[in-house]
């Protein structure tokens, strides 16, 4: 067992023991939120790190959250079935948008803006279908829990934060494993070639469209799971907080801020952005609306200018330069053209 493995194991045990340390519900809520968003951001970075910068992940999150809640509220279908359905739908949408994009080599700005349109379509659909979805006022999954029956497995509703904590930890760990599986697999090598030299990779016989599609669908599916869990945990969803341009940008930025080229980068991004918004909320309070968003925006600007590989990516970079180590982030960002 080498040292990074030990660090990981200790870190994981530390995460697992958070509920046992007697923190308040608020701290637990922050931990749950950090891991859940960490999972969603990880899902985004599964494709984002290959140069597929999607501004449409709000679409997948919205599909996840609303599909599950609508199935439960209007058809009484348990989220345990609803989530797989939402994942399939989300992957299908990912396929529908990804296939033509990759086929016609829609990349860069165009890909970002096409996916942005997708996330707006989903947001507006939710608003337009207000008879079912509650429109922009949002919707609550029909509650079956009460003081007598605090938890319902079938409805996936738990009043107990510790239960949620372990569910979210499990989902998050699966997310990290998926991230690593994608990283380790054949796809990684193919995609690296793809993100560097599209034509060269194509001539090497790599099926560019297929590999990109697989990554996109995995990413879409993960984000849908994240959206569904978010709805079940919060027991309230609305179109603005689960879809559209704002949430899509939030996903992209947190992943970049943490570092999308490292396994734990997106999680670090989630922790940083949560601590930032919560910290600002605690210190400046509710009276000064907007200050948190303002500082958040300013930090993103600084991150992209000065730390394009993210906090964790930068930390690892510095650490490696000091020790001369060779392990660590394997996928290098594209070489930057000089003047």
């Amino acid at each position: 067992m080498n040292i990074p493995m030990i660090i990981k194991a200790v870190g994981f045990l530390a995460v697992l023991s958070i509920p046992a340390l007697g923190f308040s519900d608020y701290v637990l809520h922050i931990a749950i939120s950090a891991l859940l968003w960490g999972f969603i951001y990880t899902g985004w970075s599964v494709m984002g790190r290959f140069g597929l910068v999607s501004l449409g992940h709000g679409a997948f999150m919205g599909i996840g959250a609303y599909m599950v809640t609508m199935l439960w509220n209007h058809a009484g279908i348990t989220p345990w079935i609803g989530i797989p359905v939402a994942v399939v739908v989300s992957m299908a949408v990912g396929f529908m948008i990804g296939f033509p994009c990759f086929r016609f080599r829609i990349t860069g700005h165009y890909f970002a803006l096409v996916t942005l349109a997708l996330s707006e379509v989903v947001r507006l659909l939710i608003v337009a279908l207000r008879d079912y979805t509650g429109g922009s006022l949002g919707v609550t999954p029909d509650s079956v829990i009460s003081a007598d029956t605090p938890n319902s497995f079938i409805a996936m509703q738990f009043s107990d934060k510790v239960t949620w904590f372990y569910i979210v930890v499990a989902v998050w760990v699966v997310g990290l494993l998926v991230w690593r599986a994608v990283d380790r697999s054949m796809i990684r090598y193919a995609m690296e070639a793809v993100s560097q030299e599209e034509d060269a990779a194509a001539s090497l016989g790599v099926h560019v469209t297929r590999t990109k599609l697989i990554v996109t669908m995995i990413s879409a599916g993960m984000t849908a799971v994240g959206g569904a869990i978010y709805g079940q945990y919060q027991l309230y969803i609305n179109p603005e907080t689960t879809s559209g341009i704002a949430i899509s940008l939030q996903i992209v930025f947190a992943a970049i801020a943490g570092g999308m080229f490292v396994q734990l980068g997106p999680t670090v991004g989630a922790v940083i952005t949560l601590l930032l918004t919560e910290g600002l909320r605690q210190t400046v309070g509710h009276d000064v609306h907007g200050l948190d968003v303002m500082i958040y925006g300013a930090m993103l600007v600084l991150f992209i200018i000065y730390m394009p590989r993210g906090v964790l990516g930068r930390v690892i970079e510095v650490f490696e330069n000091r020790t001369g180590g060779t392990s660590g982030p394997t996928t290098q960002p594209r070489p930057q053209p000089g003047e």
Binding site: G51, V53, G108, H109, A112, L249, V252, F253, I256, G290, L291, D292, V293, M294, I295, Y296, G297, A298, M299, L300, V301, F303, I304, I305, P308, P333, R334, Q336
Partner: peptide, 19 residues
């Protein structure tokens, strides 16, 4: 730098101005 960074940085400005 990569063109997508320029797009994203203005996204940061979006939040800043909105805030």
């Amino acid at each position: 730098t990569e063109p997508i960074n320029q797009l994203l940085v203005t996204g940061g400005v979006l939040f800043f101005l909105q805030g």
